[in-house]
Simulated scan of single mutants.
Amino acid sequence: MTVEDQQLIRRARAGLSRVIEPRDAIGHMLISALGPAVSWEIVSTGRRLSAEEGLALTQAVQRAPEAVGGTMSSAAQRWKARAAVVDIDADRRALEDVGGWLCVPEDDDWPAQLDQLGLQVPVALWGRGRRTGLRRWPQDAVAIVGSRDVTSYGRSITFDLAGALAARGRT
């Protein structure tokens, strides 16, 4: 894989992670069937799937029909508003400003255990601190999971909890 391909995949996964929710089975099947770059193109532009892409997605859905709720059309409507406000370059700059990193499944240090989540595997991991901690996962890892529409109380508790865990060496 070329450096340009790697950069394209990172950008696509960064954008997709801002649009596709963890429980969005159609979004995850789209990524699985067509790859992150083509999926981001479809999600961000709203273009229709080609016949070949539609067939690949249909075959993915047929392998796990019980996991899918809704249709591609309803999913595209859901993604449209979110994708319209995604600015991958601004996100990258903000991440760099706080000393953060983005880890994608194509990276060598991606925690392979996450792949056991199937259709709920994260599109990407955004983090701060020592990225080397990913290699130790899951022995001393903790996940704090919440809503994108966080309350001020939830944000406060999350920062307190995450800070205390990080101070004790937890990933």
Rank of each mutant, 00 (worst) to 15 (best):
2 T>Q: 05
4 E>W: 08
5 D>I: 05
5 D>K: 07
7 Q>R: 09
12 A>Q: 08
12 A>P: 06
14 A>I: 14
15 G>I: 12
15 G>T: 12
16 L>N: 05
16 L>S: 03
17 S>Y: 13
18 R>Q: 14
19 V>P: 08
21 E>H: 10
21 E>D: 10
21 E>F: 10
22 P>I: 07
23 R>T: 08
25 A>G: 12
26 I>C: 06
28 H>A: 01
29 M>L: 15
29 M>C: 06
30 L>E: 07
31 I>K: 00
33 A>H: 07
33 A>M: 05
33 A>S: 11
34 L>C: 07
35 G>E: 03
38 V>L: 13
38 V>Y: 03
42 I>T: 10
42 I>Y: 05
43 V>G: 10
43 V>H: 13
44 S>H: 14
44 S>D: 14
48 R>Q: 15
48 R>V: 09
48 R>P: 10
50 S>H: 09
50 S>K: 09
52 E>A: 10
54 G>N: 13
55 L>K: 12
55 L>V: 08
56 A>F: 02
56 A>V: 00
58 T>E: 14
61 V>D: 09
62 Q>T: 03
66 E>D: 10
69 G>H: 14
71 T>W: 14
72 M>H: 02
73 S>Q: 13
74 S>G: 02
75 A>I: 13
77 Q>I: 07
83 A>T: 08
85 V>C: 01
86 V>Y: 06
86 V>D: 09
89 D>I: 00
90 A>I: 02
91 D>Y: 07
92 R>D: 14
92 R>T: 13
93 R>C: 05
94 A>T: 09
94 A>S: 13
94 A>C: 12
95 L>M: 15
98 V>I: 15
103 C>R: 02
103 C>G: 02
104 V>R: 07
104 V>H: 08
105 P>Y: 10
105 P>I: 12
106 E>P: 08
107 D>C: 04
107 D>T: 01
110 W>I: 07
111 P>S: 00
112 A>P: 03
114 L>A: 00
116 Q>C: 01
116 Q>H: 08
117 L>K: 01
118 G>E: 13
119 L>S: 07
124 A>C: 08
126 W>C: 08
127 G>S: 11
128 R>E: 11
128 R>C: 05
128 R>M: 11
131 R>W: 06
132 T>E: 11
133 G>Q: 08
133 G>P: 07
134 L>S: 14
134 L>Y: 15
135 R>W: 01
135 R>Y: 05
135 R>E: 12
142 V>F: 09
144 I>N: 02
145 V>D: 00
145 V>I: 03
146 G>A: 15
147 S>W: 06
149 D>Q: 14
150 V>H: 04
151 T>A: 04
153 Y>N: 04
154 G>E: 11
155 R>K: 07
155 R>A: 14
155 R>D: 11
156 S>L: 04
156 S>V: 00
156 S>A: 11
157 I>G: 02
159 F>H: 10
160 D>Q: 13
162 A>T: 00
168 R>W: 02
168 R>V: 00
169 G>D: 14
169 G>P: 12
170 R>H: 15
171 T>V: 12
171 T>P: 02
